[in-house]
Simulated scan of single mutants.
Amino acid sequence: MPNEMKGQYSQFDEGIRGMATESLKDWRNSIGEAAITIVDQILDGKNEEERKTFIARHINSTFWNRPYYFRNNNAERREDVFQSRIVSETFATHFEIIKNIPDDSRLEALPKAALVLSILAIDRAFTLSHSGIYSGDFSSYQLAKDVSPRIHQLFEKGRNGQDRVTAQMWSQIIAAAKAHVEPQASNITSSIPLEDEEEMPDELLYKPQMLSIEV
């Protein structure tokens, strides 16, 4: 978003609402499609029974402790949470989309919404692969909208008042995702965007074309 418009979205609402809605839809669908592609790659070469067993192991658990959150599905290494291949490559889609947007045109909040959306997209990709029915329109997937508040709890404070995902863990999670982003054509560096996926991120307005888990 141009600097003169930052913080004044409501004043320009009527003129840019359509553009903002389309950009947000494209952002969501890009993450949804990335998850499907990566799940297909992971399941490639497995027979039907192996696929069913693999998928069941990953989604027949609570959102607090999905095996696919962790590298090598090793939930004992809590410091590796949200750094598995499937999470990192899906989450990387967000950074790929915003990589050429200048730092001063971005919000400084942690990209919680993008990571929540990645988790929801991965779950949907496993479910679709299990049923053999695919749909590209992730933006209209109602179950993801309904479950989103529950997933956001993963990134809130625990009962002890401490962040479930610490600043150090966030740095590792973001670094793991950015490792899958193609190098930029310029020296513009990526930063940390998005706070709420239901609100239009400044980054997408600017360029519309385009855990230690304690319950």
Results as ranks from 00 to 15, higher is better:
7 G>R: 08
12 F>I: 07
15 G>N: 11
17 R>V: 10
19 M>W: 00
24 L>G: 01
24 L>R: 14
26 D>L: 11
28 R>F: 07
29 N>I: 08
35 A>M: 07
37 T>D: 14
41 Q>G: 15
41 Q>D: 12
41 Q>R: 10
42 I>K: 14
43 L>T: 12
48 E>R: 10
51 R>Y: 02
59 I>E: 09
59 I>C: 06
61 S>Q: 04
61 S>L: 02
62 T>Q: 09
67 P>L: 12
67 P>H: 10
67 P>E: 13
68 Y>C: 02
68 Y>V: 09
71 R>T: 07
72 N>I: 02
72 N>A: 15
73 N>K: 02
74 N>M: 02
79 E>H: 09
82 F>Y: 12
91 F>Q: 07
91 F>M: 13
92 A>R: 06
95 F>S: 03
95 F>I: 04
96 E>W: 08
97 I>Q: 14
98 I>W: 00
102 P>L: 02
103 D>T: 14
104 D>Y: 11
105 S>C: 12
111 P>V: 07
113 A>Y: 04
114 A>T: 09
114 A>M: 02
115 L>F: 02
119 I>C: 06
120 L>D: 07
121 A>E: 06
125 A>L: 09
131 S>T: 15
143 L>Y: 03
145 K>C: 03
150 R>T: 15
151 I>D: 05
156 E>G: 14
162 Q>T: 08
163 D>C: 02
165 V>M: 03
168 Q>R: 08
185 A>K: 11
187 N>T: 15
188 I>Y: 01
192 I>L: 09
193 P>I: 04
193 P>D: 15
193 P>K: 01
195 E>L: 12
195 E>A: 13
197 E>V: 09
198 E>M: 14
198 E>P: 01
200 M>H: 12
201 P>F: 13
201 P>Y: 03
204 L>V: 09
208 P>D: 10
